[in-house]
Design a protein around this nucleic acid. Sequence first.
DNA 1: GTTTCCGGTTAGTTGCACTT
DNA 2: AAGTGCAACTAACCGGAAAC
Length: 443
Amino acid sequence: MSSSPLVNKSTLVYNQIISFSPTKTPFKTPKGTKRKDNDENLPPGSCSTFSSRPSKKIRFSKPKSTSSVPPLFFPHRDDPPDPVLCSKCSDPVPPTKPTSKRYSTEEKLDMMLQALEDCHWKLSHFLHAISDHTTRGGRGARHAQVMSAFLQGRGTYTPIEIIDLWVRSPDSRIAKNTNHAELMYSFSTPYKAIRPLRPAITSLAVQMTEVKLASEAKKAVKPDAGLHATLRVKGAHKADLLDIGSSTFAEIGALQLQVQPVASRLLSTIAGGTTDIVRKRRPVETVVINALSTLNFTRNNEARLLPLMKGLLYFAHSAPVDLISYNSRTGDMPAYTTIYKAVKHLGKQESAATLARGRDPKVVGVIQFDNVQNYTKQRDHRVGRVNHMNIGMAGTFYELEDVNVEALSLESKQELVAKKSVAIVICWPVEGVEEPDTVLEVG
DNA sequence: GTTTCCGGTTAGTTGCACTT
DNA sequence: AAGTGCAACTAACCGGAAAC
């Protein structure tokens, strides 16, 4: 291996470029003024070298190298080029930036690999050093600029394009007689502990997805997220019949899709819902909403709006307690006792609301009482094995809309009677009936 | 005819786990 | 820390069926 002191060469060229930066124009003379021979702005011992024409290109002699690979930078500090002298005053002319030769990709790769070798660096050392912004206590501005442009995708090739090439490269194939195949998509082994690329990057993907899913779920089951339906005395998000309706399922789905987009997408993929076609049987969206709701409920038993709705449905259909126990165990609905409490809670809530509505003097309504028989057949195992008749009384309140409340005012009627402005309308019965059917008083 | 058992629901208690 | 959910358990209850 050749060992040319390349670092020193690069330092020299860099200094040269800085010293003669085109942004520095100390020799520019204002129009109409003739520069004096002793002008302090002129370089010492040198006449002006600037002209309107391009300067003559300066050729550097190529240094001899023991390597077949062309060096990155030249000339060598210890082997400076012969200085170019001014034709008028024989002073040395400052060298200009050397013209770059157009190298092929192969040549450039060889040069870069040679440069790494000359630095005693492996590729991983170089990539780590140029990517690491933490352990060395900061970076140079140039370093930061280059990495920022690359990582933000402003370069010709994006980071992910390069990683994709790595993943697809035959060089990254899973080696035989190793456990690398078992480490693909690994949740248990930290991805940083996996050395080969393919197992590491697939493990990185699933482990980051796992973190994301946990983060989404954590947000979804928060009390304010909208999935809670508590029976707590001081609960902020109590179960309410207003929250339980035909649109509840869709609202829960929209909420979950908003808070858990990654989880929804993954579940949808499992269900085969990657196309836009809406299935008539087992619609993917419906299944995903249901599955995600169960998973959220498993995480936090307060996030149970949909499971509670399912429980109420089972209860309303007199499902056997074993069926409810089974579904409670699988996270599809709360325990039987909780559903029972919810029914009582919602019943009290609804009766209080109905009572308040009925007491409102602005509301006109009718209460109808009737005896009720509920015949429970033997097939309803939840209520026993025998046919049985439950007898009770039910009251139903009807609200009558578009009725003028004043028409039912007793005071108003008495005033009208006092004024003798009440007309009596007699409705005669149907044929064959002697007594009048109805007598109406019309004010 | 009486007693016991069966299979189910209802209701209450307890202790642990979890959430607020 | 307090409140809540819930599993597990117990007791009571029911009418019918089975056993005595």
